[in-house]
Nucleic acid binder design. Structure first.
Lengths: 231, 231, 231, 231
DNA sequence: AATGAATGAGGTTTCATTCAT
DNA sequence: AATGAATGAAACCTCATTCAT
């Protein structure tokens, strides 16, 4: 039973419940989350949750829908920008991650869902995941057609970017602990703010995608064809 | 019906419990796992778990230790091989993932732990994570020193590889569902066996790392063919 | 969607509530009935029930009063008819059952009340029950005085008729299931319409009451034919 | 999940739970009964009920099975006695009611089940109900064949006896209240012990069944045939 | 008169853990 | 070592009732 948000009060109580539920589910997982805790944290009576939204499972699905809603939109918006491909690729990564970060605890939620085999993923949320991949595909295709990108396994690139960065975001605590045992320089690479790490990841992705600069080095030009065959 | 210890598997009860616990914790998470289920699946009496191992939390920690034990060893073994850097890099990725795959449900366990902020990670397991990163660092450093690799953010590379591939492994179910809505060619990229996807990821990692070939091309040309065969 | 009182059925809301409550209480019992369900089925807001009638118990008492109100009246009406005793006896049974049937779900309500020891029976409803027995007593007394009936335990007759027929009516579902396992002829006796079963019961009651014919047989022979026409 | 009674301790705890559950369900109905109350009255931990028997519904079904188990057996035993039909008929009624009375609260349980449409009746219990009717049929058939009984609607007779007497038993409280308002003689008929009322009912049933004495009145012999047709 | 929302109390069920054997 | 049984605590959910509008 989905809650009805009215234009008037923007669904004050359901909104509060949902926001709280996102955090609790992300922190504890579905099995570990307690409806009691969500109610208490949201400052509403437990029965209100059932009145407005439904049972624990319905609440969780609502949370997932809410949480994945922005990602696809962000990816779509980026595509329709008229930027050059290389910028589009960076923009894709930035916008998807920006969305993820903007929703507190998006990353752990995603990871738990993936870990559980997507048992609770509403079909809507799955479709949105697909749209993000589709957006990446369009960018890479465009780059390849323009001769700027080489062909790569799209999905490999996708999981490295999305999986990697969400790992990074969700794993903040673990990173800190692991970094504590590494030398300063290495540790500093593990403790970058998300925005900077996003740029690092984007850089690596681009390095992998871009054809070795063809224009200036007329000597290596022929060799680049060999590279293509190798990859 | 009930688990009976024979002379053959005498003393193996903890082993059976542990193996079962790995699967149940991976599938349901700590909060969602049921001691009852673990006991039933393991074919032992519930009280046996408490007798042999301890409470639910102790069991979980035992599971994490067990599961992370192999990863560091695999990474270390790879480093001490005398192979060329490029091969070492590939070997690193392959061996770490091979270990992950060899333990059924390693991936979801790791992802849940990361998602929960490593609340239950024993210090030992954290140290092993650090060793894996250290191993990657040694490889990259070697490559940079030899002029074959450019400098990249080590940790970015690490999470892209580890995060990405564990995402891929754990997300099998979700992938299938998402792939079902994509065009055939794109879908096929999302449905590769883990081993092949590992190679794709390794390839992308290498593309990002390798300096655009500076040495005379005609010499390395033959070697590149060897690479192709290997992949 | 919600129940809206129009000028036409103004003041009809309590009526709607009561009618619905009869059905729900009959189907589920007091403990099993839900105020929510009554409100929904009646098409009114739950708070309306409290506004118009009162709490659940008050509603239930109202239902009992309503439901038993007609029975006594029907029995009284039958007595003051000038018919011969034998006809009066049949008329008694017919009218009481006719009333029971006319109120959907009268039978299960009565049975649940009896089963619960009449915990909720309002004193008024109890008085009405008494009047039905009193009516039967007057008929039997008249028959005995006229030498047509033998003396029987009045109350035994009463419960056999009322208990039996309400059992029959309320037990429709069970009868169907039990009859499914009996031979065709026996089953058909268990599946008569209530009106026909009422006649069967009346016939048995009369057989038990009527004195074995003492008057010269050849005189009454014709009357027996009249009976046939009546039945 | 049915409990397993062992020969050793005769299922001490489950037995206690069941006996208590019979009383509570009979007194309050399924919806009104509280698992808490059953546990408390039985002197066991609430969770024990779930461990030994299952959830509330399973417990209720177990209760119904238990409660209906004896009735069919009693009816069957009576049939195989070599007594004359008239005695058999009385014996049938006596034995079935004796069983009903021997299980405290059988009557209200039966009535509630009938009232609810037999929603929870296990198929086994339904079969036992059928056997009771079958037993009655055999008695009546024997009487008819021997020329001692007239043909009547078997099912009508059955419900009058079973419905009536269970009404009587379950309605003890209500009877007292109603009788309080009746004249002494009538009231006394409503307050007989069950055994005596059983005899009254048996008497009425026999009056209805028995052919008007055929032997002495050789004149009416032909007319009796007419009676048969009429009834 | 009507209604959406709120809520305390209590209902059923589950679960990790312990006990007795 | 092993196990059936027991159990307190708490989890999820429901419901009759009331409140504010």
């Amino acid at each position: 039973m989905a809650y009805k948000s009215t234009t008037k009060d923007a669904g004050k109580v359901p909104e509060k419940i949902l926001q709280t539920a996102i955090n609790v589910f992300a922190a504890k997982g579905f099995g570990g989350a307690r409806v009691d805790e969500i109610a208490k944290d949201a400052g509403v009576n437990k029965a209100s949750i059932y009145y407005h939204i439904g049972d624990k499972e319905a609440l969780y699905k609502e949370v997932l829908n809410r949480v994945f809603a922005g990602a696809a939109q962000a990816a779509d918006d980026n595509i329709s920008s008229g930027k050059p491909v290389e910028e589009k690729l960076k923009g894709h990564i930035r916008s998807v991650i920006k969305n993820a970060v903007s929703i507190e605890n998006f990353a752990p939620l995603l990871m738990r869902e993936v870990a559980s085999g997507g048992e609770n993923m509403p079909r809507e949320a799955l479709a949105q995941m697909g749209r993000v991949i589709q957006a990446l595909k369009e960018i890479v295709d465009e780059g390849v057609k323009k001769g700027e990108f080489r062909e790569v396994n799209l999905f490999a690139l996708h999981i490295m970017v999305i999986g990697g960065l969400n790992f990074y975001i969700a794993g903040k605590n673990i990173r800190k602990q692991v970094a504590g045992k590494m030398d300063g320089k290495t540790a500093s690479m593990a403790l970058l703010p998300v925005e900077e790490m996003t740029e690092e990841v984007a850089k690596i992705a681009l390095s992998a995608l871009k054809k070795p600069d063809t224009t200036p080095r007329h000597i290596t030009q022929k060799n680049s064809n060999i590279d293509m065959e190798i990859d």
